[in-house]
């Protein structure tokens, strides 16, 4: 009866109903997981030591990757925008334009996507393999609440570290944009920074900064959720890591979309 079972699952996987059901299951599962995060995270005991260790791993160890990406992004954006601006005789706007795009949108979103790839997958794989090799059970019988010890610390660390990474990425992107400007022009660093800071307002920076906390939270929650619900076997662990990245990246864009509506409503645009 093997072929029969296969035909059945194949059929139901293809049907629209089950795809929708899967999405709702996923959203429901993640929402429940998030509620549990707040319930357990607020109660003592707090795992300070593990939180610090995770901040180090998630924040510090992501620096090189985030830094390189940001620098390249600032440079490319500058070099590519110049011809268009030149066409309108507006090349003096170059620093302002790059600054605004980096700070408002590109910095936070690119950093978050890079981190979804790096942090999300590593959390998903780590917790997934801990789950299938019963390390999480072992923790539980060792007088440790694994949800607090593993999940709360990682989610908090990701939430706290992402805005820091975004600010650093913004800075680096703008610095490499300065180099990009100087490839064709000669602009002093002082003039460049003046132009950048004149064009930036709090309403550019603040919503983007707040939004980064949500990006970090989403990366942490999704990574942990996928890891904690990993299926048995090495394939299960790989799948956890992979789908952590996919779902976290999607979540980042959805949060971005919601954030832009919000800032619009609040008149911050």
């Amino acid at each position: 009866m093997f072929w029969r079972a296969n035909v059945f699952t194949f059929g139901s996987n293809m049907s629209k109903n089950s795809a929708w059901k899967e999405i709702f299951d996923e959203v429901g599962g993640i929402s429940y997981f998030t509620a549990r995060f707040f319930r357990e995270g607020l109660r003592p005991r707090y795992e300070w030591q593990e939180l610090l260790r995770q901040c180090y791993i998630i924040g510090y160890k992501s620096l090189p990757l985030v830094g390189i990406t940001a620098a390249i992004m600032g440079m490319v954006l500058t070099v590519q925008s110049r011809p268009t601006l030149e066409e309108f005789g507006a090349e003096s706007w170059l620093p302002s334009m790059v600054a605004i795009s980096v700070v408002r949108e590109i910095g936070p979103v690119i950093t978050a996507l890079i981190c979804a790839g790096k942090i999300g997958s590593s959390i998903g794989a780590e917790l997934g393999s801990m789950k299938v090799t019963e390390q999480i059970d072992a923790m539980e019988v060792s007088g440790t609440n694994p949800f607090k010890y593993l999940v709360v610390t990682r989610v908090l660390a990701a939430t706290l570290m992402l805005p820091v990474l975004v600010v650093l990425a913004d800075g680096l992107a703008l610095y490499s944009s300065y180099i990009g400007v100087n490839l064709k022009d000669v602009v002093s660093f002082k003039l460049y920074t003046n132009q950048v800071f004149d064009s930036l307002e709090y309403s550019d920076f603040l919503p983007a900064f707040v939004k980064s906390y949500f990006f970090g939270f989403a990366i942490g929650i999704v990574g942990c959720y996928k890891g904690f619900n990993s299926k048995k076997g090495t394939e299960g662990v790989g799948h956890s890591a992979n789908s952590a990245v996919v779902v976290a990246s999607l979540a980042i864009f959805i949060i971005d979309l919601i954030a832009v509506q919000f800032t619009d409503l609040l008149g911050l645009n």
Partner: peptide, 17 residues
């Protein structure tokens, strides 16, 4: 109670990290 009950897991469940 869990202090008084030891549990040896099938694959030892040592913490990898």
């Amino acid at each position: 109670m869990r202090v008084r009950i030891g549990f040896l897991f099938q694959n030892s469940a040592l913490y990898d990290s």
